[in-house]
């Protein structure tokens, strides 16, 4: 009898221990995940705050923060201009693609017509295009429009990846709005144009913010077209400028400057992403899972 009681007790204790171990392992896993995702950017920040000689020692905490790298980035190349270029290109790309896509998404999400599904799949197909497949044709198009080394060339060419994506996601959002909305408007005698501007745009606000943000990030990060269609350092966008920062020789890259530039252009993006976290996740999954 006593033995039986003791056995039951140890069994319960073992179970408790097992659960505690599982808990510890789970939190260890969480710590590893956080370290893995966050450490590289943390390391970039630490490195950007080190002077030339401190860079060559591995310290996991900047001993005394050295801000000179942040000044040098702007002094040694037109980095301010590059940021402005990136902003101009990304914002114009977002505005143009959102307005074109919103009109198209109304048609595809709310109106039944033959060939609608086919059209949606053609558009999805365009978003799968490898960018390099249109590179030479695009190069010629831009040259013939006289837009080589001009920011307009970038806004125009970025339509190839922002437009299909925004149309696709906005169409999914449009479909989810209740049907009675426009029926009421039609009974009141509203034209489709008024329906879009007065009924749908206000309701689509959150969706527009999400898709606009995703399109902005895509345009801000684009590299291949920006590298190929611009020539002078004044016309470069941020990714091209960061990729082409160079020192006296390829063995003497100014890592402090490169890390400072990286931190400058990434911190605003990270803030945006953290603020709009939920919206971004819903936008990404609307584009992929439901599609």
């Amino acid at each position: 009898m006593l033995i039986k009681v003791m056995l039951i007790k140890t069994n319960a204790r073992l179970k408790k221990l097992k659960r505690a171990v599982a808990n510890v392992l789970f939190y260890l896993l969480l710590a590893v995940i956080v370290l893995y995702t966050v450490f590289p950017f943390y390391w970039a920040i630490v490195s950007s705050l080190k002077s030339g000689s401190a860079l060559f020692q591995v310290d996991f905490w900047p001993q005394d923060p050295y801000w000179e790298n942040y000044v040098a980035v702007f002094r040694e190349q037109p980095f301010g201009r590059n940021i402005l270029n990136s902003l101009l290109v990304s914002i114009s790309t977002v505005l143009i693609s959102l307005s074109l896509a919103l009109a198209a998404a109304y048609a595809m999400g709310r109106i039944q017509f033959r060939g609608r599904t086919l059209l949606l799949f053609v558009i999805l197909g365009v978003s799968m295009f490898p960018q390099v497949a249109v590179l030479s044709g695009m190069f010629e198009l831009i040259n013939s429009l006289g837009l080589y080394n001009n920011l307009l060339a970038l806004s125009l060419s970025y339509m190839i990846f922002t437009l299909p994506f925004t149309v696709w996601v906005l169409t999914t959002f449009m479909r989810e709005l209740p049907k009675e909305l426009e029926e009421a408007a039609i009974v009141d005698g509203a034209t489709p144009f008024t329906i879009v501007t007065k009924v749908f745009i206000p309701l689509m606000g959150p969706a527009l913010v999400t898709t606009g943000l995703l399109a902005f990030i895509a345009a801000w990060n684009e590299f291949l077209f920006a590298l190929t269609f611009t020539l002078s350092s004044e016309m470069r966008t941020v990714p091209v400028a960061i990729a082409l920062i160079s020192g006296a020789s390829s063995y003497e890259l100014p890592w402090g400057n490169i890390m400072a530039a990286s931190v400058i252009v990434t911190v605003p993006l990270i803030v945006l992403v953290l603020v709009f976290q939920r919206r971004i996740v819903s936008g990404l999954t609307a584009g992929a899972v439901k599609g």
């Binding site: 969480l30 995940i33 956080v34 995702t37 966050v38 590289p40 950017f41 390391w43 970039a44 490195s47 990030i217 801000w220 990060n221 590299f223 941020v238 990714p239 091209v240 960061i242 990729a243 890592w255 490169i258 890390m259 990286s262 252009v265 990434t266 993006l269 990270i270 945006l272 992403v273 953290l274 976290q277 971004i280 996740v281």
Partner: peptide
């Protein structure tokens, strides 16, 4: 918080992550 943390690599421009890792 964790879900936000894992979004950080996604938000970093590819060119920037390439340079960050080049340095590491």
């Amino acid at each position: 918080g964790l879900r936000a943390a894992i979004l950080i690599p996604w938000a970093i421009p590819t060119v920037v992550s390439a340079q960050m890792w080049n340095w590491m």
